[in-house]
């Protein structure tokens, strides 16, 4: 007898199949290249390269998974962790969609809205990159024009200005403490910059949850 799966169960089942499938295919890429061109890896150098790179990114990856999954929802998580660019594209896109539709992220409507926003964003991104690859010769001088460089260098401030004002103003009681803490840390700790902002996201999320919990217990929010 076929088991009757709920929608969420089927998202998890399909997501697992897709993600594990993509992971195997991703690993097949270097294996196939090695096989076709008759080149085995330089094992010692590979080990050294991995030791220099993997531990830090694995640790970050574990923390990112725990932090982002509850925000992205089920369908959104499976997709986002395959297509990447989570904090600078997929999550803002989902947050904006939830906000516009006035639905809570933890409801089924919220799950569907965020999956739809993230899937659309993934499709558009993939297609634009394909166009970029096909048209790289005519596009390179335009996209690398010095006049445009500052615009793309300042994408994150331009994104979080708009997103921040919408979200912070609606939840200002919760937002005051984390915004102040992050301002002080980023202004006075030189090590905090574009490269380390990703590590500060989980720190800030945990701190904000703690603040929100205290305010909730005191009946302020």
């Amino acid at each position: 007898m076929k088991k009757n799966l709920s929608y969420m169960d089927s998202v998890h089942r399909d997501g697992r199949i897709w993600n594990i499938g993509v992971m195997i295919l991703l690993l097949m890429f270097p294996v196939t290249v090695a096989f076709i061109f008759g080149a085995s890896p330089d094992w010692m150098a590979l080990l050294k390269g991995l030791i220099a790179t993997a531990p830090m990114y694995w640790a970050v990856g574990v923390i990112e998974t725990i932090t982002f999954v509850p925000m992205l929802g089920a369908g959104g998580s499976y997709l986002s962790f395959v297509t990447g660019n989570i904090s600078n594209l997929k999550l803002p896109c989902a947050i904006n969609a939830l906000e516009q539709n006035q639905v809570s992220a933890s409801s089924e409507e919220g799950e569907l809205i965020s999956t739809i926003a993230i899937a659309t964003s993934s499709i558009v991104t993939t297609v634009i990159i394909i166009l970029g690859v096909v048209l790289i010769v005519p596009l390179t001088p335009i996209l690398e024009a010095p006049v445009l460089e500052p615009a793309f260098a300042q994408m994150l401030p331009a994104l979080f200005g708009g997103l921040g004002v919408a979200f912070v103003s609606k939840n200002w009681k919760i937002a005051v403490a984390p915004v102040l803490l992050m301002l002080v840390l980023f202004i006075f700790v030189p090590a905090l910059n574009e490269g380390t902002v990703g590590i500060m996201v989980p720190v800030s999320v945990l701190f904000t949850i703690a603040v929100a919990r205290i305010l909730y217990k005191k009946g302020v929010v």
Binding site: T67, I174, P178, M200, V205
Partner: peptide
């Protein structure tokens, strides 16, 4: 909401780095 605000706060801090 707190999780979203936490993420946004980190990036607002980054703007001032």
């Amino acid at each position: 909401n707190a999780m979203f605000i936490g993420m946004i706060s980190a990036f607002l801090g980054y703007v001032f780095c």
